[in-house]
Amino acid sequence: MAFAMRVKVPPNSANLQEARHRTFDFFRAACRSIPSIMDIYNLYDVVNPSELRSTIAAQIRKNAHITNPKVIDMLLFKGMEELSNITEHAKQRHHIIGQYVVGNKGLVQDVDTKDEGLSPFLKNFYNSNY
């Protein structure tokens, strides 16, 4: 119930300036909660705060090309919800590690040089049939 009470949809940003400003606010809020996140999920041995900060920045930069204030508001809303889920401890440690520490490249990263010089066909062949 507690979260539901707090979910309040702010009025839309009037222009891009305002949306931009809100984005910075959100980033700051996220950065401020990093120490407590490290604490809650006991992340000290896998990541340090600056890495988490750059992950957050990367997530925001991914949408840097968007100029529609409405869309930015929507994305901000989603971001805020995610942030509150994290700080409420609505997630578990492996969620955080999976999404923000390891990233979508997966745990085992094949950084071998043996694939160099192979044709795209063969690389794809080793990956899957399609």
Partner: peptide, 19 residues
């Protein structure tokens, strides 16, 4: 879809030829 790690016949030969 194909089962397991199987590949289409011609693709296998094409891959082998490159190796």
């Amino acid at each position: 879809p194909t089962v397991g790690d199987a590949r289409e016949d011609w693709k296998i030969i094409r891959a082998l030829s490159e190796v």
